[in-house]
């Protein structure tokens, strides 16, 4: 690795990690007022407040929500991506545009509009949240998987078929392992959509799913809760970071 690359890597890491430094300091600060450079009193008040606010169960709900969205949106995105990359989809551009449209529409408008429809259809609140967030995650999984399938060499599967593998075996033992890094990346992005959502979870979920973003938003809407907000924010940032490292490892193994 050249020196330039190394410097660039260090700069990138610093750029990602530096914003976390004040967050970590605030999380452990019982008292920190200007103009002090460091907190005047250290302690666990922020942690205690976060636990009192229900951070434990909220993290669990956020995790479940993220996982459900990942489990639904990843295979759907893979199928759409594969179709768009390998087959001649009639008006493929329009199909892609439709799949990407959730990125363009403000989530608040979508949530407000579809909330009424879901209520009329008597869709249970959690199911409505899963559905809407899966649609919101589809642009990410589709684009990622479309690129992966476009770069994917189908020769390996054909080879397997000529060697006597069934179509099913060719997909599960050849195609999917080759695409594992891309699938992991897509699942990670879909997880983030569920993990970080506020407006759909609250409005469509009817307050039944009190997740971490709901706690962060309400605690952060005033002054004086900084330590609690910092603890809640770290609880929101760290699991995805750990996941990112895990996904990175899958990617390395995929290349090896």
């Amino acid at each position: 690795m050249g020196l330039t690359a190394r410097v660039a890597r260090a700069a990138l890491a610093a750029w990602l990690l530096l914003p976390l430094v004040p967050l970590v300091l605030w999380a452990a600060a019982d008292r920190w007022t200007a103009p002090a450079v460091l907190p005047q009193a250290w302690g666990t008040a922020g942690l205690r407040d976060a636990v009192d606010a229900g951070a434990g169960p909220a993290s669990l709900r956020s995790t479940v929500l993220g996982l459900v969205v990942a489990v639904l949106a990843t295979p759907l995105g893979a199928m759409a991506g594969r179709a768009l990359a390998t087959y001649r989809v009639p008006v493929g551009g329009a199909v892609l545009a439709a799949l990407l449209s959730p990125l363009v529409l403000p989530p608040f408008a979508v949530a407000l509009g579809l909330d009424v429809l879901l209520l009329r259809l008597r869709v249970p609140e959690p199911v409505g949240v899963f559905l809407l967030l899966t649609v919101a995650a589809l642009p990410y999984t589709t684009v990622l998987m479309r690129a992966a399938y476009a770069a994917h060499d189908t020769g390996f599967e054909e080879e397997a078929r000529t060697l006597g593998a069934t179509a099913r075996q060719a997909v599960f033992h050849v195609q999917l392992p080759l695409l594992a890094p891309a699938l992991a990346g897509a699942a990670f992005l879909a997880f983030l959509v569920g993990w970080s959502d506020y407006v759909v979870t609250l409005l469509v979920g009817g307050g039944q799913l009190v997740t971490l973003p709901l706690l962060v938003a309400s605690a952060a809407s005033t002054v004086g809760n900084e330590a609690q907000v910092a603890v809640l924010s770290l609880s929101s940032v760290l699991p995805p970071l750990v996941l990112l490292v895990a996904v990175g490892l899958v990617g390395q193994r995929g290349r090896a």
């Binding site: 009424v116 209520l119 609250l202 009817g206 307050g207 009190v210 709901l214 309400s218 605690a219």
Partner: peptide, 27 residues
């Protein structure tokens, strides 16, 4: 208790429920 960042969020949910004719609302 359902914590919201803005009371308007609660009203938005109620208005959606009202528009849908819900009688077993969540708020």
């Amino acid at each position: 208790r359902v914590p919201v960042a803005d009371t308007g969020d609660a009203l938005d949910r109620v208005l959606a429920e009202r528009q849908a004719g819900t009688t077993e609302g969540d708020v």
